[in-house]
Design a protein around this nucleic acid. Structure first.
Lengths: 189, 189
DNA sequence: ACATTCATTGACCAATGGTTAATAAAGAAT
DNA sequence: ATTCTTTATTAACCATTGGTCAATGAATGT
């Protein structure tokens, strides 16, 4: 038995995260076993627990990054678009695109019944919702009350959660998403 | 070893279903182990497999019943309400109420990634969606195209799926549901 | 060179869904 | 009532899972 590996071959957090992202996305978080992940990393599954407290913490690290990306995308749209109505439309579509591109992450972020994960993610998902609130509030010049924005969020959420269960990509349902967003915007008048 | 029980104490499908319904609702389908279920039934967990092929089939039997109940409720609303607009509102609320009252079932019905369950449920969930389509189509006198109805369904779905993950009952969020439905109906004009 | 710290293995644990040979109760036939 | 057949059940088994931890040699520090 020769446990510790030579310096160049040591497991790192980044290595775990990179492989985990691939597996979670292709197989699904709950379906990926720690042993499976360890196999792709060519280490024992116990080694992963040196770097991460548990499976949920691996996931949390990935999702935290993804939330940041989404927030940045929304900021970009606000900075680059001119027309307020267009901005709103693009933000809503951006949210749907995020949900369907990171399907597995979205599912766990907003739908998971794992108490551990929910606890870890509470702050991050609140931030995203707050980003949506503030941008919609600004773009509609305070004409939308919080309940209306919430209703809009839930409608987006419905689109994403439904298509998350299909094998369809964002491109597959893009026109449906466009229509859904247009429908939602009917209530902003 | 004395395997078979006396006639009055034999396990039956109904006994399994009754206990399963309670446990699935209180603990959650995926968190209920077959051994846990067997314990409440005072039998071995292997005995359950004499009556049901697997865990999914127990669930399917329960859900099939619940779908029927929902469909009947929608029929009742159509028969008893007078005003078309009121009917639509009540149907949409009825759908939300169903989703939040049978939270665990709804989650599995529409959100489960278990291929086995999805396969079993495909026909039943299509029936429910078709019930929604036909009733909305009739009540709006063909003014709504299928894509709009789909959009409405997804918005309802979003409300339900979001609150399914909270410990809130339908009564807790009833006013929010009312608002959401009113918001959705803005797009039906 | 020696001591300490670190990263890892592999065996362990408790738990899970599902399977199946053995078994006695239930049911049918005589 | 007795015998034979069918049925419903147990308990042991299997492979798998997430997580734990003593033992171990590489890495690091003195």
């Amino acid at each position: 038995m020769s446990p510790r590996k030579s310096e160049g071959k040591e497991l790192s957090k980044e290595m775990v995260l990179n492989e985990a992202r691939k597996l979670f996305a292709s197989v699904g978080y709950s379906k990926v076993s720690m042993r499976q992940l360890a196999k792709t990393l060519d280490c024992s599954h116990g080694a992963i627990y040196y770097h991460f407290k548990n499976k949920a913490e691996i996931f949390y690290s990935l999702v935290k990054t993804d939330f940041s990306l989404l927030n940045n995308k929304i900021d970009d749209i606000i900075l680059t678009e001119n027309n307020a109505s267009q901005k709103i439309e693009k933000i809503l579509l951006c949210f749907i695109e995020f949900g369907l591109t990171q399907q597995n992450h979205y599912a766990i972020m907003f739908l998971s019944k794992e108490k551990e994960i929910q606890h870890l993610l509470q702050l991050d998902s609140n931030k995203t919702y707050e980003k949506l609130i503030s941008s919609l509030t600004d773009l509609t010049e305070n004409k939308l009350n919080p309940a209306s924005i919430w209703s809009i969020f839930l409608s987006l959420h419905g689109f994403i959660t439904f298509y998350i269960n299909t094998q369809l990509s964002y491109q597959d349902v893009k026109s449906l998403a466009n229509f859904h967003v247009k429908n939602i915007m009917k209530s902003i008048e």
